[in-house]
Write a protein that binds this DNA or RNA. Structure first.
Length: 274
DNA sequence: ATAGGGCTACGT
DNA sequence: ACGTAGCCCTAT
């Protein structure tokens, strides 16, 4: 007799994720009235968004480990201080948030792309950020190598090439199109054994990039709120590292392709150690 | 308007 | 029978 339950479609989920990236968690009404997302969410109320986001956060968080019913998020604040498990360390680090940068910051090992998105997402300036600001932001939160600025600029260039970022004058910002409205890729909930298309580089690279975007969502969420279980952070780490590897291969392939198409002879030397 | 607890339809 | 996820209720 109660009402029928209407399952969320993947389009709705994507719109919600993108909405959270753009407006932040808790801004459900804003997401709902944003013309960018509204078309996908006509059947949902702001409360629905809140509930759905809660469910998504929970299911991302518990992934593989213990599935005690009490891991419902609220335990973080009460127990984090007493039991030093990895999970709680992360929760704690995120709860203190802001400018806490203990030397063993759990996220210091995150992939650079993830850091870049993290930086750009937390700067709400619609003009974007210049490279100096990005470097500064990341240095605040993570330990970086000596040549970081140089490294960063090549990463940024790459992301612009891929259409993930937009460069205006000397400022970089996240391209809206990259945040979901673009492709209605079905993208089912991971876990599934997904038949790996052995057909090629492009497809797999795109898939990985998609995963990297998801990782960015999670990181954005971690900064906006104070919870995201260790599993999610670890996964974000793993995935963004994969994405960077794929990036390199993709870029290399592109260069080779361009040289070939100009009729140049391309020589490849294989001297990897692994 | 939002957060969090509670209820329950639905799929195993 | 049980867990999950969508929906409802209430305090803030």
């Amino acid at each position: 007799m109660g009402n029928q339950k209407v399952k969320w479609t993947s389009e709705e989920e994507e719109a919600l994720k993108a909405g959270v990236v753009k407006h932040g968690t808790g801004k459900w009404k804003n997401i709902l009235i944003d013309p960018q997302f509204a078309p996908y969410l006509t059947n949902r109320s702001n409360i629905d968004l809140k509930d759905k986001w809660r469910n998504m956060s929970i299911s991302y968080g518990q992934c593989s480990r213990e599935k005690s019913k009490a891991s419902r998020v609220k335990t973080i604040s009460s127990e984090a201080l007493s039991t030093p498990t990895t999970e709680n360390l992360v929760a704690e680090a995120d709860a203190v948030d802001e400018f806490s940068r203990s030397p063993r910051d759990v996220r210091s090992a995150l992939g650079y792309n993830a850091m870049i998105f993290e930086a750009l997402l937390s700067v709400k300036d619609s003009n974007g950020s210049n490279i100096g600001a990005i470097v500064e932001f990341i240095e605040q939160k993570h330990e970086v190598p000596q040549n970081f600025r140089r490294l960063l600029s090549s990463k940024l260039r790459r992301l612009v090439l891929q259409g993930k970022l937009e460069k205006v004058h000397n400022c970089y910002k996240i391209k809206d199109a990259a945040l979901g409205t673009k492709t209605p890729i079905p993208k089912q909930k991971d876990i599934r054994p997904r038949p790996v298309q052995n057909s090629g580089l492009v497809i797999s690279a795109e898939t990985v990039e998609d995963a990297a975007m998801t990782a960015a969502y999670k990181i954005a969420e971690a900064d906006n709120k104070s919870f995201v279980a260790a599993e999610a952070v670890k996964e974000a780490d793993r995935v963004s590292t994969m994405a960077e590897d794929a990036d390199s291969v993709l870029l290399l392939a592109k260069e080779i392709f361009e040289q070939c198409s100009r009729g140049e002879t391309v020589r490849l030397a294989y001297n990897r150690t692994c």
